[in-house]
Design a protein around this nucleic acid. Structure first.
Lengths: 208, 208, 208, 208
DNA sequence: CATGAATGAGAGTTCATTCAT
DNA sequence: CATGAATGAACTCTCATTCAT
């Protein structure tokens, strides 16, 4: 009556973990992970409005189990996005750290935003609308972007007057087009245009 | 316990209208118009997800009438947006025609897109997602933008390689930020940046 | 898929009412009445905790219809009880007015409370717990009881110091026994005892 | 992300308990007691409708243990009340035995009923509805009340014709008011009235 | 034998669409 | 041809009870 349990939790049991340390917890944790995995996938595909039952079905658990782990749909959504967002931001940090050229670091971030957008609807929806699923996430992201901005500024490659908020909004704004146009080459063009508008080649002051 | 039957449809029967065989037609047409008007307002305010009842209420007709004229919510939405879109595009034409400077015509269009976005949620949503409510609308819009593009191109003020699609997507993409940030000065900055990226100061080829 | 429509609305179309004056309203009113009737019956039988679906089923309407007439279960409950309470209090008024002897009027009221209790669980539950389904109901009831009390007091048949609140609480308190013991003769004995305790034969002051 | 497994059941394993074969038994018995204790407290506070989880939480055992000892919520409720009821009745016996004046013994019992009502919701609910949680309890209570009644009767202080059932019902009936009115002085008035109605000052026969 | 996670049948409520009047 | 009442599937969430570990 239920699929035989999807075999693929995203977060697999940590590599060298020995036989489950505690009788039950392992299974519960597996379920919890399965729910988040499923939720993440479902939210990514259909957005935040999907039926919770779809998530329960996909994760192979009953409604009760789902609600035992997450007291409300809202909570599940938040947690799922929080996790995704964190992973995403971590990757962003790594990439930026591995990139010497400040401008390339910035463009790399824009690229990551847009690539992710193609694969996770709910995640990027939250990025676009509020900057992230959580105040804390938004803050961290802002801090990260601010660092990027300062690097570029000090290298003299960023248009004067560009704020962190500008970068946040602009990167989010471009997300729309990824949803709209399936073709990657298409949205890369827009990204290039916007980034060029951010370059220090332009020195005219921005409004207000 | 119930109001004695509000005898007052918003559009009252025209005074001297004879019991002409066409009376019904006229009435129906009036209803149809009232529905579209109301739908337009409601969709603009609350987006495409509003309860259909709200539209019926606002237009002063019953649900049956509404569904007689429009077989589904979808249809009503499409038609309402079609109309709005056309009016909007007409205005865009007029403005562009009245603007001598090609570049100013282009920026003026971007500005109109974003200003409208602040006032008509559903309309711009469709613009962002598919370029317009209808294939036909999208086409007309594309033609218009193409004209703008050509004017700019011929004046040598547009970055080489920028396509009509680019302009369509880019203008739509900026819409997001209007929703997100309430402040007009905020989104004007992003618009400036994007437009600058479109200027002929940049001659590097765009990807693909 | 639904019973062919229970033929018996409690509130039948007013006697000499000619063919339904208004196209639809009549039917809707019938449904509304059917819902209240069903709700009243169901609440009376099972208390306030029944499934709303049971009411919908019993009244022969869909859930939507029920919720069209009453925005929430709470509202339906309140209205149903309000109606019952009013009818009940009206009858109480009539009886009291038709009874010359003040003491008999008081006992008659107690009797009515208990008789009703045997037939309407939710109604009397509200009477017992808060004095009625609504502040307004409670007030009216209090006023009525106060009148009864004054009549008895002036006739010198009521124990000195007995307050309106005492009478309200005492009548409610006896309700319990009706639920408990099915036999009418049983609870009449208790009523007699309590009423005797209220008689002016006792002149000892009440506590506090 | 989860507390490291709270190692602390409320009733910790007694220090020097040997790994005796009876160890399990003892443990089980301790659990059973803990459950009843918790259930009693919880039922007293919130009534019989509380979530079973609350009881498990409060007793420090898992749901499985709870259901091992008590096959259903109903059973647990019954047992908990049975125990409370017995203790309560024992106390009633003691008080009655320690009271010389028969009438004072009777009033004392009424007072105990009402005082308890203020402190143990579920217990008194069962008293009110069925006379007690169990046929056996009801019987014992009836016997006790009958003794009280006989003492009063023989002392000539009880209204002739008052049955044991009358006393049972009347004392239960007054419980309602304790729930309703918080003020102790308020329900004492009603109690006084009812008791006065039971006094031998009234010699009129009771109905039926 | 204890654990507490899992279950799933409802609960109250909403809304696009249909249909009797 | 208009009306707006009726429909009912779908939604989020709860809780008594079972079952794998």
């Amino acid at each position: 009556m239920r699929e035989p349990r999807a075999a693929a939790p995203t977060t697999a049991p940590a590599a060298g973990a020995p036989a489950a340390p505690r009788g039950r917890r392992a299974d519960a944790e597996r379920n919890r992970a399965a729910i988040i995995t499923a939720a993440t996938a479902v939210f990514a595909e259909h957005g935040a409005d999907v039926d919770v039952r779809e998530i329960a079905r996909r994760s192979g658990v009953g409604m009760g189990t789902l609600y035992r782990h997450f007291p409300s749909k809202e909570d599940l959504l938040r947690l799922s996005l929080e996790q995704e967002f964190t992973a995403w931001l971590t990757q962003a940090h790594e990439r930026a750290a591995a990139t010497e050229d400040p401008w390339q670091a910035l463009s790399g971030f824009f690229e990551q935003v847009l690539t992710t957008q193609a694969h996770n609807r709910a995640l990027m929806d939250s990025y676009v609308q509020t900057g992230g699923p959580t105040e804390s996430c938004v803050h961290k992201c802002r801090v990260f972007i601010d660092a990027l901005r300062q690097r570029c500024e000090q290298a003299g490659v960023l248009r004067p007057g560009v704020s962190t908020e500008d970068l946040l909004s602009l990167s989010g704004s471009l997300c729309t087009t990824v949803q709209t146009v399936g073709d990657e080459r298409r949205w890369r063009r827009l990204m290039t245009i916007s980034l060029d508008g951010l370059s220090s080649r332009h020195r005219e002051p921005l409004p207000s």
